[in-house]
């Protein structure tokens, strides 16, 4: 159950994640210079989400947490999506 409590992440793992995050930052800056028209926003957000996921999973140890905390995070993201989504049902069709 309490994996997060007993599990100590090694320095090396963190270093790998850090390197990944820096690479992705470089990637997103490079990609932003190329014009993909409408897809640019999407690509930026996907890269940002990958970075966020890495931070969440490794730096914040969610990988080692129980199903409950993972559920709470998903629930919150879902709530936020519903908030923004339903607002757009107004904004887009007005």
């Amino acid at each position: 159950m309490e994996d997060a409590r007993s599990h100590i992440t090694g320095y090396k793992t963190y270093a790998y994640i850090w390197a990944c995050l820096l690479l992705l930052t470089g990637l997103t800056v490079t990609v932003a210079k190329i014009n993909f028209t409408g897809f640019s926003v999407l690509i930026c957000l996907v890269i940002a989400s990958i970075k966020a996921l890495l931070v969440l999973m490794f730096f914040m140890h969610v990988r080692y947490e129980g199903a409950f905390l993972k559920g709470v995070i998903l629930l919150t993201i879902f709530t936020l999506t519903a908030m923004i989504g339903l607002t757009f049902s107004d904004v887009w069709y007005r």
Partner: peptide, 8 residues
């Protein structure tokens, strides 16, 4: 508000 939103 938009009609769509009102229905939803």
């Amino acid at each position: 508000m938009s009609d769509t939103a009102r229905v939803v």
